[in-house]
């Protein structure tokens, strides 16, 4: 009986382990090994840290990473600021049909691919696009306005793409907050602001943290949105990785970039958790 149970357990676990090792672990080990190779001649490679040295000594790469990270943090913050009231409304104020309708509304952008979504924004924001024409028509501008190809456009695209990933964890945690706890906050003399600060936000902290981590990582790892909406100055770190792998045939440097991205983004997440006094366990719990 026990042996059978054990076998069953192993059988259940096998796909997960296979998945983890084949698709996560082995590729990463392999990529790490690739990142340690240095091209010394045609088809010849040595083991060295040259690729990491390149990353750390070339200000351009560091600067690109920094810019990507800062933009991602800002995108995360904006997403949070917009998503929080929306989630609060969905979780605590809207009831029944309206609630599910609003939730669905957040989901709709994900019925089309990221490419189509980004094209949608391009159609809206470009110089000959809808918004520009609308401004002209309304007399608010006397010549076409280019709203594409700048950091604000990237930000709009990132926030739009990330919204759902912030709303879902927020709605879930906010729904678990008993209405009477909020009422107690008011009953005992709290104002809207103090109830928000002392009761609602601390309660929603795990949702805020997990939403922020997901959105930050998604923004950092996004490729299409920043490159398409950012235009000539997009300068996104994944773009560097892509061009090393695909355009330059330089897998070694690309792999090193990939690892730096993994390492530095983990570091940033860890730092943020430390600053806000959260732990990953609390977030998962």
């Amino acid at each position: 009986m026990r042996a059978e149970a054990k076998l069953g357990f192993i059988l259940l676990l096998t796909p997960l382990l296979l998945w983890l090792t084949l698709l996560i672990f082995i590729p990463h080990v392999d990529m790490f090994l690739v990142s340690l190779r240095e091209r010394v001649g045609v088809g010849k490679h040595d083991t060295s840290l040259a690729n990491y040295r390149t990353f750390l000594t070339e200000p351009l790469y560091l600067w690109t990473f920094l810019r990507t990270a800062v933009m991602s943090v800002v995108a995360t913050a904006i997403t949070l600021i917009i998503a929080f009231p929306v989630s609060y409304y969905i979780a605590k104020i809207a009831k029944g049909r309206l609630q599910s309708a609003l939730f669905l509304l957040c989901l709709i952008p994900f019925y089309v691919s990221e490419l189509v979504r980004t094209f949608g924004w391009m159609i809206l924001l470009r110089e000959t696009g809808l918004v520009s024409n609308l401004l002209l028509w309304a007399g608010l501008a006397d010549q076409p306005v280019e709203m594409l190809y700048n950091d604000a456009a990237i930000m709009v695209g990132l926030v739009y793409t990330s919204m759902l990933f912030m709303v879902v964890p927020l709605v879930t945690t906010l729904e678990s907050l008993d209405d009477s706890v909020i009422e107690a906050g008011y009953d005992l003399g709290g104002t809207g602001f103090s109830v928000l600060r002392e009761i609602v936000i601390p309660h929603a902290a795990p949702g805020i943290v997990s939403g922020c981590i997901v959105v930050f990582m998604l923004s950092l790892g996004n490729y299409l949105t920043p490159t398409m909406l950012g235009g000539k100055d997009s300068l996104w770190f994944t773009e560097l990785i892509y061009s090393q792998f695909i355009v330059r045939f330089n897998w070694e440097l690309g792999a090193a970039f990939g690892f730096m991205l993994l390492f530095l983004s983990s570091l940033i997440v860890w730092g943020m958790l430390k600053i806000t006094g959260q732990t990953l366990e609390k977030t998962m719990g």
């Binding site: 008993d178 706890v181 107690a184 008011y186």
Partner: peptide, 28 residues
């Protein structure tokens, strides 16, 4: 509600789980 000289003990008490006991009592 926050300006009325009445306070309420809720059916399920509605203590603030995110605070310790002293902070709960000191909230008001």
């Amino acid at each position: 509600p926050n300006k009325r000289p009445v306070n309420m003990v809720f059916q399920h008490l509605a203590l603030f789980p995110m605070m310790n006991i002293a902070d709960n009592i000191g909230y008001g």
